[in-house]
Nucleic acid binder design. Structure first.
Lengths: 191, 191
DNA sequence: CCCCTATAGTCAACTAGTTGAATAGGTGCG
DNA sequence: CGCACCTATTCAACTAGTTGACTATAGGGG
């Protein structure tokens, strides 16, 4: 159960309700750990039972009340201990690559569309990451930030996401070119 | 259940036994879809029951007999249809990034060790990918290969893995530098 | 002969993740 | 005033993935 630790790490950046956490996961953590809101709520329950987080209800007038979660001392300690243990190798699940693996170069239409969409999504992500980055840097330059800030972890993981999306765009672009050239070539020789 | 399709895609590159498939997943497909041998055997059973693959026993004298699986026509058709459907967004699970997210810059030792190991693993993967690449190209240059071969899919997914590992190495190297500089700096000002 | 490694596969128990729906208050639009 | 959408959460059922142990054959080294 490692989502636990991803949740603890996310809460280490500041308290949050389940709903807020879901969004935090969606924009930031989703890079390296994906989870649905249901999963988050469920794991928050368990973390609370285990005393690693504590909740308090915040009454709101303009919207429904919410339960805000904070790390407890035990939670911080568990997170620290987790950091010392060896990490499992990363796991990926990418349907697009499965589809591409099996693509018939004579009928690349669906893959071409999917690749185009993928590039679009990567660009959007990149734009969001760049915004987040500016907000983190808050005017400082990167070197200064990395020397001073307490938020180096989130910055470095954000950079991982950023570089990943950049690579992805470059790669998907060559896929697009390769498959269109090839398809054009086939039509050229047969028509 | 999408491992089904990853298995079908892997079998599209040629028949294999469960054991061989496990290795194929380990070196090639693991990039974009991870699975344990147990999972593969289980899914192969199901795929056989559903008539998407068929098995035959190959008697071997120097080692235990094996069951070799091939795609059936229905399997090929399912794989083709799968390729037309929209792909789910990729999902990642990377413990190292969780640990980095929550790292205390004053105690970066464990993360530094993990980052170093990660770079090593990426280099090994890269070396294996490059070997696979040479084998695929078989003397041809890339352009010629991409114009002629039936294996463009596997080549392009291999390139995704290759670029991913290269990016990973570059990124992890900056992480290493950032954290060591920072730690040296702290010791310098306090000692 | 014993142990180690590789091939080849199976079983059972468990944990984690996905999907779909339901509840409930509030805001903004036409 | 009804409908869509956002905040905020929960429940239940299901599917997928992980862990650990276990069976078997065969080859090589000491």
């Amino acid at each position: 159960m490692s989502l636990r630790h991803a949740v603890l790490a996310a809460l280490a950046q500041g308290e949050a309700s389940g709903y807020e956490l879901a969004k935090r996961f969606d924009v930031g953590v989703a890079n390296f750990w994906s989870a649905t809101p249901q999963q988050l709520y469920r794991d928050l329950e368990r973390l609370e039972q285990d005393g690693l987080v504590s909740a308090r209800v915040v009454e709101q007038s303009r919207r429904p009340n919410k339960r805000v979660f904070v790390l407890t001392t035990a939670g911080r300690e568990e997170l620290r201990a987790f950091g010392e243990r060896p990490a499992k190798p990363p796991a990926m699940r990418d349907e697009f690559l499965v589809k591409l693996q099996a693509v018939d170069p004579e009928r690349p239409e669906a893959i071409l569309a999917a690749a185009t969409e993928r590039i679009g999504r990567s660009r959007e992500k990149l734009a969001r990451y760049d915004q987040l980055r500016e907000r983190m840097l808050a005017g400082r330059d990167e070197d200064q930030f990395l020397r001073e800030s307490d938020q180096v972890g989130p910055y470095l993981t954000l950079m991982a996401g950023r570089m990943y999306e950049q690579t992805n765009i470059r790669w998907a672009t060559t896929v697009l070119e390769t498959l269109t050239n090839r398809h054009a070539g086939v039509r050229g020789t047969s028509g």
